[in-house]
């Protein structure tokens, strides 16, 4: 639960192999309380439970990356406190953009 706010489920990265012969490809992220729930949720969210699709999930904070200045090249959300300045939210919201 490192870095995640109290009570929030950890972030997982999801990799899907759409059909045989292809690599698993990163398709997105989701939250889950544990690995099993992550696979289960990934099936619901990213594949609509298509059969024959293979899914990998891995906790985002378990990913090791290639170069030192790219500690978590894919995602390392909440770990990076540097950017979590309150000023993020103080910009007036007058451009609704859907």
């Amino acid at each position: 639960m490192s870095g995640a706010p109290q009570g929030e489920w950890p972030l997982y990265e999801v990799f899907v192999r759409g059909k045989r012969g292809l690599n698993h490809v990163h398709v997105g992220s989701l939250h889950a309380a544990d690995d099993r729930m992550a696979v289960h949720n990934a099936r619901d969210v990213y594949t609509r439970r298509n059969e024959g699709v293979s899914i990998w999930v891995v906790r985002a904070d378990a990913i090791t990356a290639s170069s030192p200045d790219e500690k978590d090249p894919l995602f390392a959300p909440a770990g990076d406190k540097v950017y979590r300045h309150p000023t993020f939210y103080d910009i007036p919201d007058d451009v609704p953009h859907m």
Partner: peptide, 28 residues
């Protein structure tokens, strides 16, 4: 929300901002 999380803000924080009225959504 996942894309936003790559910028260091969690979904829970964002949801709280929303329900506290501190962030907006499309007026439609």
């Amino acid at each position: 929300y996942s894309a936003c999380e790559t910028l260091g803000v969690s979904r829970q924080e964002l949801t709280e901002k929303l329900i506290e009225g501190k962030q907006k959504y499309s007026s439609i």
